[in-house]
Each structure stands twice: as C-alpha cells, then as structure tokens.
Amino acid sequence: MADQDLIMKRVGEGIELSQRGDREAARGLFAEVWEEIGGERGDPFHRCALAHCMADVQDDVQDELLWDRRALEAADMVSDERAAAAGVSSVEGFYPSLYLNLGECYRKLGDYDQARQHLAAGRAAVDMLPDDGYGRMIRGGLQRLEERLCEPDQPADAEEFRPS
C-alpha cells in the first residue's frame, strides 16, 4: 500500500500545482506518474484518478476529452474492494463527476446529443453522492450543464466548469 499511497500523494501534488495556476507543471507531473503506473496497463484506480486530474489541466478540449474518456474507462474496472483499499467507500461515487466532465467536453465541442447523454448518465448516478460540499458542487455542475444545453447558442467556452 505504500507505493499506492505514494502515487496518490503525487497526484495530490499535481492538483496543488494546478490550483496554484501552474497547469503546465501539473501536466508534466501527471505525465510522469502516468508512465510510472504503466499507462493504460496500470492499476485502474490510479488510472481513473490520474486521468480525471489530467483532463482538468488540458488546454485543448480534444485532449481533455481523451483523458476524461480514459478516466471513465478505468472507473469501469475499479472494484469496490479496490476503492475501499484506497479509502473510498464506493466506486459508484466517481461517476457523476466523470459524466459531468464528459458532458462539458461534448458541449464545448458542440456535440449536444453526446452532452445530453452524459448529463442524463450523471443525473442517474447522482444519488450516490453524499449531501456535502462535494455532492452539492457536482449537482450544481450538472444543473449548470443542463442550463447551458438549453441555450446551445451560448459560446462553447462560456463559463467553463471543471469539477474534480
């Protein structure tokens, strides 16, 4: 577990870099960790967390979408036992945020049908979220995505929202 804790510690360091506005350094750190875990062959929990964070620091929406897809694909492979070993009660709690992020990508790309499908999937999974600050943030993000999709003439990059 020490190696796994080290991976998540480094992911946390990348998040801190991003929050301080150093997206380039965060991308670099996330890329290093991605290689260390074996990329697509790595532990699904690590891949999911890392890809989810890597998507947040992309400058190009196509790159963001690629990482968001990787995060969702990896989440589908994470068992509740593996999540529990990492201190997460259930993998089901990952999905609302993952679907929200994918929906935002598709909205920015102008693919409103895909955006609505991911919004619906996020809404269907939202009951797994706790009633806390994080849960309210994701619910609010889903609500804002729905509002933006009701006004598709809005610029694709209007009021970008990236929960993580």
Rank of each mutant, 00 (worst) to 15 (best):
R20C: 06
R20W: 07
R23Y: 06
A25C: 05
A25P: 02
A26S: 14
G28Y: 03
L29H: 01
A31T: 14
W34I: 03
E35Q: 15
E35D: 15
E36Q: 15
G38Y: 14
G38F: 15
G38V: 14
G38D: 13
R41V: 04
R41L: 13
F45M: 13
H46I: 00
A49R: 09
H52P: 01
H52M: 07
C53L: 04
M54P: 00
Q58G: 04
D59S: 06
D60L: 09
Q62Y: 05
E64A: 14
L65K: 07
L65T: 10
D76Y: 10
D76W: 11
A83E: 01
A85G: 13
A85T: 12
S89M: 11
V91L: 04
V91G: 05
G93Y: 01
P96C: 08
L98C: 09
Y99T: 02
Y99N: 12
L102H: 03
C105Y: 01
Y106P: 01
L109K: 04
Y112C: 02
L119Q: 00
L119H: 01
L119G: 00
A120Y: 05
A120M: 11
D127V: 11
L129P: 02
G135S: 09
R136Y: 12
M137I: 05
L142E: 01
L142I: 05
Q143W: 05
R144L: 12
E146W: 06
L149A: 09
L149R: 06
P152M: 14
D153K: 08
P155W: 10
D157R: 08
A158E: 13
F161G: 00
